[in-house]
C-alpha cells in the first residue's frame, strides 16, 4: 500500500509537471476527460460492489456507522482546521468555514468569496484542493494504520467521487458503501455549514 501511495503521488506530480511545461489553453478539455474518467471509475466501483453478494446482506448491519462516520468527519474537519487556523493566527470563523468545505473546493470557495471575502475564498479553494490531494496520497496508509472506516475521513465530501476509487481499492465493499453515503451527506452539508460558520465572524 505504501507503493500505492508513491504511485499516486508520482502520477499527480508527473501530470502537474507536464501541465506546467505544456499548459493546456482550453481547460474544458481536461475537465471533460476528468469527468469521463470519473464516470468510468464509478461504473467500475459499482460493478465491484454489485458483484459482492455478501455486501447486500451486510447492508442491514451498517446501522449507526452511516451516521457516526459523517458526523465524525464533519466535526473533526472543522475542529482540526480551526486548531490549524489558531496556530496560523487566522480568525476562527474563517478557518472553521474552510474546514467545512470538506474538500469540495469549488463550492466552498465560491460561497466564501460571495458572502465574505475573495482572499479567504482563494485560501479555501487552495486548502480544499490540497486536502483532496493529501487524501488521495494517504488513504491507503490510513486504511492499514488506523482501520478501514478511518480511511473514509480524509476525503470528506470527495468520498463519493474522486477519492471513492482509492477507498474501494484500500478497504472493503462495506466501507466503500459507507464512504459513498458519507460523501453524499457531507456534500449536502457544505452549502449549509460554510455560510453558517463564516457568518459567525460578522463579515
Amino acid at each position: 500500500m505504501v507503493t500505492m501511495t508513491l504511485k499516486i503521488i508520482l502520477l499527480v506530480v508527473l501530470g502537474a509537471v507536464i501541465g506546467l511545461a505544456l499548459p493546456m489553453q482550453d481547460l474544458t478539455v481536461l475537465d471533460g476527460l476528468i469527468s469521463t474518467a470519473l464516470c468510468l471509475l464509478l461504473f467500475g466501483v459499482g460493478l465491484s460492489l454489485g458483484r459482492d453478494r455478501h455486501l447486500f446482506s451486510s447492508m442491514r448491519s451498517l446501522g449507526r456507522v452511516v451516521l457516526v462516520v459523517p458526523v465524525g468527519v464533519a466535526a473533526g474537519s472543522i475542529i482540526g482546521a480551526s486548531l490549524a487556523g489558531f496556530v496560523l493566527g487566522l480568525p476562527l470563523n474563517e478557518s472553521a468555514a474552510i474546514g467545512a468545505g470538506f474538500g469540495w473546493y469549488s463550492l466552498s470557495a465560491v460561497l466564501i468569496s460571495r458572502v465574505y471575502a475573495v482572499e479567504v475564498g482563494a485560501l479555501a479553494f487552495l486548502s480544499n484542493v490540497l486536502r483532496e490531494l493529501v487524501a488521495l496520497a494517504i488513504i491507503p496508509w490510513i486504511a492499514i494504520r488506523f482501520g478501514y472506516l478511518a480511511a473514509v475521513a480524509p476525503g470528506g465530501a470527495t468520498a463519493m467521487d474522486v477519492t471513492l476509487p482509492i477507498i474501494a481499492k484500500s478497504t472493503d465493499s462495506k466501507t466503500t458503501l459507507v464512504a459513498f453515503v458519507t460523501g453524499v451527506l457531507l456534500s449536502l452539508a457544505v452549502p449549509v455549514l460554510v455560510p453558517l460558520l463564516i457568518g459567525l465572524g460578522g463579515g
Binding site: A16, G19, L20, A21, P23, M24
Partner: peptide
C-alpha cells in the same frame, strides 16, 4: 484520473 488531475493543476 490522477494524471489528469495533476495536469489540471499544472495547467
Amino acid at each position: 484520473l490522477l494524471f489528469l488531475m495533476g495536469m489540471q493543476i499544472g495547467s
